[in-house]
């Protein structure tokens, strides 16, 4: 029996429960409720301010969160890998555990820290004795989502980075420092170039995951923050406007799958 025959059953299953439903979404996106086949749903959705806002918010949040994750993740991974301290292994393990928790837990926690009645505002009112609301009211704005996304997705950058750092030849660092290079220079000239593929791979993965993030935005409970995934949810579940939901879904798929393809190329180059 030729080898490809064995690949057929799982592919058929995947086709039935994933590819076929996805195709139906694309099909439904060009079938307005009025019947027939037209691009009218696309025109309607692209013309609406809600969609354009959501698209803009989604993209800037994803880009901002990715940049934040890269900076924070690189810094933290650098310390763990090259300035080792007791408990560093435990921190690395903690990061692995953190990855297995759902994203919305972060938003839930931030509610207690920065929410209207949360820890930070509590500290403020205790300290100043004022009776009004505290100064931390950003949680229901896009900034709250940004903070939550950076918190949750940073470990996704750290993991490939730590793997890349562990393969870095420490002799290289010793030679560089014996030649009189200062730490900042070593980081810039030796470590950063080695880490670049891992950074690129981790960064593009985080970008895709931020574009698709739903739980964090939903838990923020902010009517002001709408991203493409929450728009899909809103159109389908709250407005029962399936064609519109499908149009938004198709746009979201196009962006994410495109970027994911890029990630696959980058990470194959990086050997990850």
């Amino acid at each position: 029996m030729p080898a490809f025959v064995w690949a057929l059953p799982p592919l058929a299953l995947l086709g039935l429960v994933f590819l076929y439903p996805l195709a139906l979404v694309v099909q439904q996106s060009v079938r307005p409720d009025s019947g027939g086949t037209s691009l009218q749903p696309y025109a309607d959705v692209f013309g609406s301010a809600a969609f354009r806002d959501a698209l803009g918010t989604t993209v800037w949040l994803a880009v901002g969160a990715t940049v934040g994750c890269l900076v924070l993740g690189f810094t933290l991974a650098l310390v763990i890998a090259f300035v080792p301290f007791p408990g560093g292994k435990a921190v690395a393990r903690f990061i692995d555990v953190f990855l297995s928790f759902p994203s919305f837990l972060v938003t839930l926690a931030l509610l207690f820290v920065y929410g209207t009645k949360g820890m930070a505002n509590g500290l403020w009112t205790d300290a100043t004795g004022s009776t009004g609301d505290g100064p931390f009211q950003f949680l229901t704005t896009p900034w709250g989502v940004l903070l939550a996304e950076i918190t949750y997705f940073t470990p996704f950058v750290m993991r490939p980075l730590l793997a890349a750092f562990s393969q870095l030849d420490t002799a290289q660092l010793e030679v560089a420092s014996s030649l009189g290079a200062r730490p900042a220079r070593i980081v810039r000239r030796v470590i950063l170039p080695e880490a670049l593929p891992a950074l690129a791979a981790g960064g593009s993965l985080v970008l895709v995951m931020c574009l698709n993030e739903f739980g964090i935005v939903l838990f923020t409970g902010a009517k002001g923050v709408t991203t493409l995934p929450t728009l899909v949810y809103g159109k389908a579940m709250l407005e029962s406007d399936y064609p519109a939901a499908c149009v938004v879904a198709v746009v979201n798929i196009a962006i994410s799958v495109g970027l994911y393809g890029l990630y696959r190329v980058v990470s194959r180059r990086a050997g990850a």
Binding site: L211, N212, P229, V232, Y233, I253, S256, V257, Y260, G261
Partner: peptide, 8 residues
Amino acid sequence: VAVPSVVV
């Protein structure tokens, strides 16, 4: 992995 879970 690439397709948003909401869309799935």
